[in-house]
Design a protein around this nucleic acid. Structure first.
Lengths: 195, 195
DNA sequence: GTCTATACCTCGATAGAC
DNA sequence: GTCTATCGAGGTATAGAC
């Protein structure tokens, strides 16, 4: 059975390059020329796989939804305890610190850019946040905080976003580590009240 | 003494329109045509006052530095107590909630965009954050928390940024109010340990 | 100082050869 | 399925009349 370099492979190659470039430079600032250079494909070829640049954006968001879901699932497999799973979430600020100091959070910056552009895909990009929000909520429910689970999920998400934004502005790794430690302390204080 | 509509007035008009549009649509997405429509001036006229679009950005950042300093000074005049002054800072999330839900924080979104563009004015835009940071630090020093003042200032700034980003994504006013209340509770717990 | 006209470039998108 | 060539729109920036 021979290896088949099909249209699907080329399409995936385009989407993966666009995923990275939309993150690093922003959606609008990324040109077809940028994607062509990154993939080694010609500009014209993109239109065999997508009708417009917006369709590439849709595909990038769909890819991120899949990748994010897989990441959340891997955190669940890695840790049976909800507090450890939430710590996996908090750790990405440190794991991805270099990229974050350069380009912010991929989710937050995309949502903000699309909101400013009044882009039709703005709601779809918010779905990436919803993925994290719902998953965190489940962990807080498992922690015994069912009543406040959504507010706690939003709070954790909010602080991760704030850290990412200031880390991008100040390029301060020590700040990231300090705030992640603070978040872990906060998480530790969220254990069930009576147990 | 007659009213003199000088070049300085026209220049200020351009910068004020650019200030608003750079916030609402982003720096790159704002065109000279947008600024022309907003001011009623012609595109060509901009080049009498500025050599490039980047020079308009420099002027916008300079204007924001002045306006921000004035706002911080007004908060100092309004409240003698540092905790009340910090509360003035936290309140802007609620006062500006509509704009924030539409376009995020003017400072955070500009810093992030310029960072992604590798723009030479990125550092200058971070200066806007530094203004808040240093002012908040002074208030925490006055609160009797000299040792941790900068970390507390960054923490307050960080949470305001996180709230702005999620508010933009989810357009949730109740979330903003809840997190501001939470921030005020946090601030209340920052009173001097022994007094 | 402000305007109109336009140069020049780059972008997204299209047409058609291979 | 991928390429080259090119179009039309819209961007920044310039030239020169007023």
């Amino acid at each position: 059975m021979e290896i088949k370099v099909s249209a699907a492979d080329t399409r995936a190659q385009i989407v993966e390059a666009a995923d990275r470039l939309f993150y690093e430079r922003g959606f609008e600032a990324t040109t077809f020329g940028d994607i062509a250079s990154a993939t080694g494909l010609s500009r014209g070829n993109f239109y065999y796989h997508f009708r417009t640049k917006d369709e590439i954006l849709d595909a990038v968001i769909a890819l991120r939804l899949v990748n994010t879901s897989a990441m959340l699932a891997s955190w669940e497999r890695a840790s049976p305890r909800p507090a450890d799973r939430i710590r996996s979430f908090l750790e990405i600020l440190i794991v991805n610190r270099t990229k974050i100091m350069g380009h912010g959070c991929p989710v937050g910056t995309l949502c903000t850019e699309l909101s400013k552009l009044d882009h039709s895909a703005a709601m779809a990009s918010t779905g990436l946040f919803t993925l994290f929000r719902d998953w965190l909520k489940l962990q807080f429910v498992a922690l015994g905080r069912a009543d406040e689970a959504d507010a706690l999920a939003m709070h954790a998400l909010m602080r991760s976003q704030g850290v990412a934004t200031l880390a991008t502005a100040f390029k301060d790794e020590a700040f990231i580590r300090r705030e992640v430690a603070d978040l872990k302390a906060w998480l530790g204080a969220q254990a069930p009240k009576s147990s």
